[in-house]
Design a protein around this nucleic acid. Structure first.
Lengths: 220, 220, 220, 220
DNA sequence: ACTAACGGGACAGCCCGTTTAT
DNA sequence: ATAAACGGGCTGTCCCGTTAGT
C-alpha cells in the first residue's frame, strides 16, 4: 500500500497491461507469464542493489539493464520510468479490499487499524530486506519522496471514501477527511520510524501505538 | 533543513574552499568583495526560492542563473556545484518563532493551535485572494504539490523538535512525532478544504474543528 | 508510382522470395492460400491508405498492423520489410483515364481542363461536406499537408506524360513539364481557395478562371 | 530562397539566435562568431558528404558529429533536427527584399523574374556542387521533400502578398494567388530540371523559358 | 500460424560542469 | 570577470525486425 499501485500515474496506454494481468491469471501462469514476472523481479532486484551501492542518481538505466542482463530498451518495457522501479506494484491485497472485507459492525477506526495490521506484514514480510531498501530510497531521494507523498495523498482520498461508505456520512464531510489524513499521518510516521531504525523496531507495535494515540486524542 | 538533509546519500568532495574564503574575509569588505558577496547571496536566494517552488531536481542551473540575472557559467564561479548552493541557508523560522513565543505555561497542543492560527495567514493567506490562487496552483500542478508536502514534512520535523523542547521529552520520542504529524495532517486538511471551497469557508473555524477532533480522539 | 519512386536511394537486398511464391502459386488456390492472399492484400491496402494519409515515414508498422487487424509481428511474416509493402501496388489511375478518354482531336489544354472538371469531384468533392472537412484537415495538419503536395507532384508527372503522348513531343521536353506544373499549381490554388471560403465559392467557376488565367498568360 | 529561411519552423525559442546574428553583425565578426560559422559550415559540409555517400537515413547524427569533430550534442546546438542540416539558412538576399528593391514602375511579373535571376546565382554560384547535392537530397528523401514543399508554399504566400502590394489589389484576390502559385510552379520546375540534369543545364536559360511560357500563356 | 517479448539503435531533449574567448 | 561554446552523459521514445513461446 505504502508504495504500490503506482501505475495509475501513467496515462501512457497499455504498456503495462500484461503485467497487470500477471496477478489475475493465477490459474495457470504459463511460461511466458512466469518468465516476464521473473524478469520484472530481476530488474527490480538488481536496480535496488545498485541504488544502494551507488546511489539513485549515480545509477544509470544502462547499468541496471546490464546487471539484469537485458537491453536498456527492455528496461523501459517493464518500467516506464527509472523512478517506477522503486515504486513496486506488489500484487497483494489493496488497502481498499482489506478494509471492505472487515465486518460491517466493526467501528470504522478499528477496521482501518486491523486492515493496516493485515496489510503491512504481507507487504514487507516476504522480503523485508528489500522493501526496507526501497523505502529508504523513497525517503532519501527527493524525486522519489515526492512520489511517495503523492501516493499517500491518493490513499487518504481512498480512505476517506471508504469511511464515508462505512459510516454513511456525506463523502464531503470534513470530519471524515480529518480522520483519514490523521490516520495516514500516524501510519506513515510509524513506518518511517521503523525505517529510520533500520527495521529493528517492531512495526506492529509502532502501529498500535500510533492508533492508540489517535484514539486517545493527541496526548500533549 | 529539509533540503540540506536530502543529500546525505551523496558522496561529496572537498570543494567548499572558494566559498570559505568568501565568508571568512569579512574583516574589511572592499567594494569588489561586497559586490561579489551580493551576487553570491542573490544566487542563493533565487535558487532557494526556485527549489521551494519547483523542487531541487526540477530546478535547473539555467533557471537559477536567469533569476539571479547572471549567466549559467557565472553560477559555477560562485558555487562549484548545484548542490553547494543549498548547504548554507537556514530554514524559514516563522513557525518556529511563533511557537517559541507562546507562553511557557501553556499546554503544548494549545501553543501549537495558537501558533497555527497566527502562522496560517502569514504562510498561506496574507493576501487571501492571491494566496488562494497560489495554493490552487500548488495543489493542481504535480511538481508544486510535491513541493508542498516536502515543506509540510519539514515543518513536522520542526514541530516535533519544538514539542520535545517544550515538554522536555526525548526528541526521538515516537509519541512526539505522532503528534506532530497528526497535527500537520489535520491542519493541511483544513487548508485544503478551505481551498477546495474556494476560500468561502472560515479557515479559522476549520482549524478549530481540526484541533478539536485531534484532542477528542478521532471520532469514527 | 509516387511512393515507389522514393526509394531508389536505398540499396535493397534479395528478400522478395516469399512474396514471389505467393503470387506464383495461383494455379489452384486452396482455402489456406486464399486466406493468406487475402491477409496479404488487406495489409497492403491498409498500408497504402495510411501512407497516403500520414506519409511513409510517419506511418508505423504498428499502425498498419492495427488497421489490418493483425499483430505487428505478423506483418513481417507477409512482408520482410516495411518497404516491401510498397513495391507492388500501382497508381490510382483516375486522372490518367479521364484525360485519355478525352477525344483525340481536342486541344491538350482543353482536354486537361475538361478532365479536371470531371476529376475534382471524384478526387476531393464526391461528398462535398465530408471532403471539405478532409481537405481542411489535409491543409491544417503539416504531415497531411505534406502528403497532399506529394500527391500533386505525382499527378504533375502523370500529366506531363499524358501531354507528351497527346502532343507527340519528347516526354523530357521542358515545356511539357512547365505546362503540367503550372496547370496543377493553378488547379490546387483553386481548390485551396474553395476550401478557405468554406466551400461557398463555386469550384467549377474558380477552375475556369484558373485555366483562363493560364491561357491568357499570367495577368500582372 | 528555394531552401532557406528554415528556422521559422522552430518554436523552440532562442537556440539559434546567435547564428541568426552572424549575418547581421558583419561589421567585425569576432573570433567567436567566425569560429561558430565555421563549425556550422563544417557540420553541414560533412553531413552532406555523408548523406550522399550513405544515404540520408543510413547516416547517423553521431557519424556526422564525428566527421565534423564535434560532439553529438553540439550538433543539436547548431541544428535542432537532423533534417535542418539540409535546409540551410543561407544568409543572403531574401526573395522578399529582392522583389521589394525592384523599381516600382516595373511590371510585377518582370520584377519577379528579375528577382529570381538575381537570386538564383548567388544562392548556387558560390558552391554549386554542394547546393546540388542538397537539392538532390531534398528531392529524393521523402521527409525532406515534404519540407521543401512546405517552404515553397510559404514562399507562394509571400509572393502573393508582395504582388498585392505592388499592384494595389486586394490581398485576397484570386488572380493574385493564381499568378503567385503558377510563378513558383514553373520556377521550381526549372530548378528541378536543372537538378535532374546534374547542373549541366543553364539555370538562367531555363528560368527565362519558364517565365516566357507563363507570359505567353501555356502553349499546348 | 500467430504473437508476445526482446534486442539494438537512433533521435532528440536536457543538464551539469569545463574550457575557451572577450 | 564574465559569458559563450562545448563535451559528455543520461533519459525516454520510437521503430524495425528477430526470436522464442502458445
Amino acid at each position: 500500500m505504502l508504495i504500490s499501485s503506482n501505475f495509475h500515474y501513467l496515462q501512457r496506454g497499455d504498456r503495462m497491461s500484461s503485467i497487470a494481468t500477471i496477478s489475475i491469471a493465477t490459474s495457470r501462469p504459463g511460461l511466458r507469464e512466469r518468465k516476464r514476472l521473473k524478469t520484472y523481479q530481476t530488474i527490480q532486484h538488481e536496480a535496488l542493489k545498485l541504488f544502494t551501492q551507488l546511489g539513485y542518481d549515480a545509477t544509470t538505466v544502462e547499468q541496471i539493464a546490464e546487471a539484469a542482463q537485458i537491453s536498456p530498451s527492455t528496461f523501459f518495457r517493464y518500467f516506464p520510468t527509472k523512478e517506477d522501479v522503486v515504486f513496486t506494484e506488489e500484487d497483494d491485497p489493496t488497502l481498499k479490499r482489506l478494509i471492505e472485507e472487515r465486518p460491517a459492525h466493526e467501528p470504522a477506526i478499528e477496521a482501518v487499524r486491523q486492515a493496516m495490521h493485515e496489510w503491512l506484514p504481507t507487504a514487507f514480510a516476504d522480503d523485508s530486506e528489500e522493501s526496507l531498501a526501497r523505502l529508504k530510497l523513497a525517503i532519501s531521494v527527493p524525486a522519489l519522496r515526492a512520489r511517495l507523498w503523492e501516493q499517500q495523498q491518493a490513499n487518504v482520498a481512498i480512505l476517506a471514501e471508504l469511511l464515508s461508505r462505512r459510516t454513511g456520512r456525506d463523502p464531503a464531510d470534513f470530519a471524515l477527511h480529518l480522520t483519514a489524513s490523521a490516520c495516514f499521518a500516524v501510519v506513515m510516521t510509524a513506518v518511517l520510524t521503523w525505517v529510520v531504525q533500520d527495521g529493528k523496531a517492531d512495526l506492529a507495535a509502532l502501529l498500535d501505538q500510533a492508533f492508540a494515540a489517535l484514539e486517545a486524542g493527541v496526548p500533549l
